[in-house]
C-alpha cells in the first residue's frame, strides 16, 4: 500500500482507499475515481508539484499534498508496470 504521491512516472496502481469526507476526494469521485479503479501516474509538473494522473480515459492534475492521502495498491493486477526513473 503506497500513497499516490510516491508512484513513479509511468507506474500504475489500483486505488485502495480515499477519504470521502475531503473535498478533493469528493471531486475525484465525481470524476469516477472510486476504490478499485486503476490509475497511472503520468508525470510530475516541472517543479515537482502538482501531479498528472490518468484514470478512466482522462488526465487530471492534483497537488502532491492532496495525493498523499490517496492510497494505491501497486501489486494488484494492473496493466504492465513500466516505471521510468525519475
Amino acid at each position: 500500500m503506497t500513497p499516490l504521491s510516491q508512484l513513479l512516472p509511468g507506474q500504475f496502481g489500483k486505488l485502495a482507499s480515499l477519504n470521502p469526507e475531503r473535498g478533493v476526494d469528493q471531486r475525484l469521485m465525481a470524476l469516477g475515481l472510486l476504490p478499485g479503479m486503476v490509475l497511472k501516474l503520468i508525470r510530475r509538473a516541472p517543479l515537482g508539484d502538482p501531479l498528472a494522473i490518468e484514470f478512466g480515459g482522462q488526465v487530471v492534475s492534483l497537488r502532491l499534498a492532496e495525493a498523499e492521502n490517496l492510497i494505491v495498491d501497486v501489486s494488484a493486477d494492473c496493466p504492465i508496470q513500466r516505471p521510468r526513473q525519475p
Partner: peptide, 10 residues
Amino acid sequence: VKPHPFVLEL
C-alpha cells in the same frame, strides 16, 4: 472562504 481543491482536468 474555504479553499477549493485544485483538481484540474487536462
